[in-house]
């Protein structure tokens, strides 16, 4: 039995809706198609809005770096380098790398959470440059990486870190790190699309990240390690990244060190970017 008759549309509210809606409908003409840059930046803006509405999500890029830097500096400082101050000069560029690389896992975590919601279907049904939701998300994450970097550097300076490379060296180090982290980010967008749940992305992500960050030159000089471990550390991309970071902050970086990092970032993007897009299209 019908509870609704056409006349019901004539009550006050519904009529107001009708008149406005008809006027509004005729106004919805299609503007020219926006460029991929515009849509990617728009998705970056969405990421910023989400930070505005859910500021708690910045905890992992503000508190974690503080805890890591304090913990490792005071835990190992005396034992490894004789004093906290001298260890800090060695550790800070490394802990910066570890903090930001750990943060990249959240890129996959967030994507996996996001994509399971209905809003992603809407994005995918829009006539836009297809990678733009993912590129926009990475742009938003680059901001998060920058926040994490700033926290670590400022805390380091407060604790007594004195980089010889000066402002230019430190800023250069952070920029190179952001470029590399965005390359790594594509690994985790890939994982975010393959794995079923956000927690699985976290688990697998940490399992990959942990050995690469600890079995590196972040915490100690590899010359004290057994030779089998040294040979892993030598080929570990994180080691090369940390070497470049230390070089930049100390003002002694070679073009080769920096070039290696940029090349690695480009290679990661070239492999995992298209792979991510392939998986994204197939969902």
């Amino acid at each position: 039995m019908s509870t609704h008759q056409p006349t019901a549309a004539k009550n006050g509210v519904a009529t107001a809706v009708d008149e406005n809606l008809i006027a509004t409908l005729t106004a919805g003409s299609r503007p020219p198609r926006p460029s991929g840059v515009t849509t990617a930046l728009t998705f970056g803006w969405r990421a910023m809005l989400k930070i505005k509405h859910v500021p708690e999500q910045l905890f992992d890029v503000t508190l974690t770096p503080i805890i890591f830097t304090l913990m490792f500096t005071y835990l190992f400082g005396g034992a490894l380098a004789g004093s906290v101050e001298s260890y800090l000069q060695f550790l800070l560029p490394g802990i910066l790398v570890q903090t930001v690389i750990l943060t990249t896992v959240y890129t996959g975590f967030t994507l996996n959470t996001d994509i399971s919601k209905g809003v992603f279907d809407r994005f995918r049904s829009l006539p836009i440059w297809r990678p733009s939701p993912l590129v926009g998300a990475l742009l938003g994450d680059a901001v998060r990486y920058a926040v994490a970097s700033t926290v670590v550097v400022v805390l380091g300076l407060v604790l007594g870190f004195r980089p010889d490379g000066g402002v230019i060296g430190v800023v250069g180090a952070v920029v190179i790190l952001l470029v590399f982290a965005s390359g790594i980010g594509w690994i985790f967008t890939t994982l975010g699309l393959i794995l079923r749940t956000p927690n699985a992305v976290m688990g697998v992500g940490m399992m990959i990240i942990m050995p690469f960050t600890f079995a590196s030159n972040i915490f100690v000089d590899p010359s004290t390690m057994p030779s089998w471990l040294q040979s892993f550390v030598d080929v570990n991309p994180i080691t090369h990244l940390v070497t470049a970071e230390r070089g930049l902050m100390a003002g002694t970086a070679s073009a080769g060190d920096i070039g290696w990092v940029l090349l690695a970032a480009a290679a990661l993007t070239a492999v995992f970017g298209p792979l991510t897009m392939y998986l994204y299209r197939r969902r």
Binding site: R30, P31, T38, T39, L49, K50, K117, G118, F123
Partner: peptide, 26 residues
Amino acid sequence: LTGQFASVDEDLTGTENLVLLGRLLG
């Protein structure tokens, strides 16, 4: 398409959602 489940971003406001789509559409 209006999907069966919420097809807007629940974290954003009504205005932000519609501005987002308006920008994406050009």
